[in-house]
Computed example of a mutant assay.
Amino acid sequence: MTEVEWLAGQSKAMVTYARSVATMRQRRLLACGYCRLHWDALPDDRLKRFVVHIEKYADGAGSSLVRAYTLYDVVKVPAVRNALPPGLLPVLKSAQASNGDSIDNSFPLWSDAPAQVALLRDIFGNPFHPTPFSPEWRTATAVALASQMYESRDFGAMPILADALQDAGCDNTDVLNHCREPGVHVRGCWVVDLVLDKG
């Protein structure tokens, strides 16, 4: 994997690279992020609750995994399975996959390559340019904005977060541009994670 391939959005190379560095939290939030992009197309409310529980589990709520697995069983119902949008089933499977599952199940190459590229960029940024993040940039305002977006899953205030970070002394163009440029943002967004100090 090269930086040129990453910046060009070559999905297969990006997935291969991300597989080698992603934490299980990032893998799960990547899959949940895709489900969030297709929220209204999920054919059963139990699948929506499944995604919510996987997000909670990714952030350390251990009891949520058992609930999620129970809800996931709804994909065995033929009417639900047949109503899933094309390509969504492997993503749902990856959301609940464990370290013991095959890499193809826990981190598949999606049929929707543009969405996967957009979400990989949101979660991993540019891995060839690690971003030093000063603790001084974690002002009360920046943390409050990031927390509110993380909890609500509404990332419309990203440009305001950029202003707050800049007011705190942040001059990193990668951070500021990621907040201000159009694009997809989900839980696991690398900038929001840095502000909230999520490892």
Rank of each mutant, 00 (worst) to 15 (best):
F128R: 11
H129S: 10
H129G: 01
P130C: 10
P130Q: 12
P132R: 15
S134T: 09
P135N: 07
E136D: 14
W137S: 04
T139S: 14
T139R: 06
T139W: 09
T139P: 04
T141S: 14
T141P: 04
V143H: 12
L145R: 03
L145N: 01
Q148Y: 10
Y150Q: 15
Y150A: 11
E151K: 15
S152G: 09
D154Y: 06
F155Y: 12
F155I: 01
F155P: 00
M158I: 06
P159T: 06
I160M: 14
I160H: 06
L161V: 03
A162H: 00
A162G: 03
A162K: 00
D163F: 06
D163H: 09
A164P: 04
A164F: 06
L165S: 01
Q166M: 11
D167T: 05
A168E: 00
D171Q: 15
N172V: 10
N172T: 10
D174C: 08
L176Y: 08
C179H: 00
R180G: 08
R180F: 01
E181V: 05
E181F: 09
P182G: 04
G183R: 10
V184F: 06
V184T: 13
V184R: 11
H185F: 08
V186D: 03
V186E: 06
R187L: 07
R187M: 11
G188E: 03
C189V: 01
C189N: 11
C189Q: 02
